[in-house]
Computed example of a mutant assay.
Amino acid sequence: MHIRSNARLAALVLAAPALAQAADLTLEVKNVQGTSGQILVALFNKAEGFPHTYWKTGEVVATPGVVKFVFTGIPEGTYAATAFHDQDNNKKLRTNGLGIPTEPLAFSNNAIGRNGPPAFSDASFKFTGTPQTVTLTLK
Rank of each mutant, 00 (worst) to 15 (best):
A18R: 11
A10C: 04
P51Q: 02
F127T: 14
Q21L: 15
M1V: 13
T128I: 08
L43C: 11
F44W: 13
A15G: 07
A23D: 14
F107A: 00
T128W: 09
A22N: 14
E48W: 11
E103I: 00
A42D: 06
T95A: 09
A10K: 07
T95W: 01
S108Y: 03
L19Y: 09
N89M: 09
T53K: 15
T137G: 07
Q132G: 08
Y54K: 14
N115V: 04
G58V: 11
V32S: 08
P117W: 02
N45P: 06
V29F: 02
A62L: 11
V13P: 02
A47D: 15
T78H: 06
A16D: 09
V60Y: 04
A62R: 08
E76F: 03
D24Y: 12
T102M: 04
L12G: 10
F50P: 09
A62C: 11
G34S: 05
F125Q: 14
K30M: 10
N115T: 08
W55Y: 15
I39C: 01
Q87T: 12
G65I: 03
N89W: 01
F44A: 11
Y79D: 11
T128E: 15
S5V: 04
P118G: 02
V41L: 07
Q38P: 03
V61P: 04
T130R: 15
T82S: 07
A16V: 07
P17E: 02
L14E: 13
L19F: 11
V29R: 00
L105G: 00
S5D: 13
P118M: 02
G73Y: 10
V41I: 07
T63W: 02
Q33V: 12
T137F: 03
N6S: 10
L25H: 08
P51Y: 03
A20L: 07
G34E: 04
G77E: 06
H2A: 13
R4C: 01
A11Y: 02
A10D: 11
S36L: 09
Q33S: 10
V134E: 08
L105F: 13
S36W: 01
T35R: 12
N96T: 05
A81R: 00
P131A: 05
L12M: 11
P17V: 01
E28N: 08
A62G: 09
N6H: 13
P104E: 02
P104A: 06
G116E: 09
P51A: 11
V60G: 03
L14W: 06
F107T: 01
L9I: 07
V67E: 02
Y79R: 06
L105R: 01
L9E: 10
G73P: 11
E28C: 02
N110W: 00
F71K: 04
I100Q: 04
P104R: 03
R8G: 01
T137N: 10
N89K: 14
P101E: 00
P17S: 05
P64M: 06
T130G: 13
K46W: 12
V67L: 05
F50S: 06
F84E: 00
P131L: 08
A81L: 02
Q38I: 01
T78C: 03
S5P: 04
A16R: 04
L25E: 10
A20V: 08
V13F: 11
S124Q: 15
E76G: 13
A83Y: 00
D86C: 10
G49N: 13
G73E: 14
L138A: 05
A62S: 12
N110H: 05
E48Y: 12
R94L: 14
T95C: 06
T130I: 14
T72K: 14
A15Q: 05
N115I: 07
L43N: 10
Q33C: 01
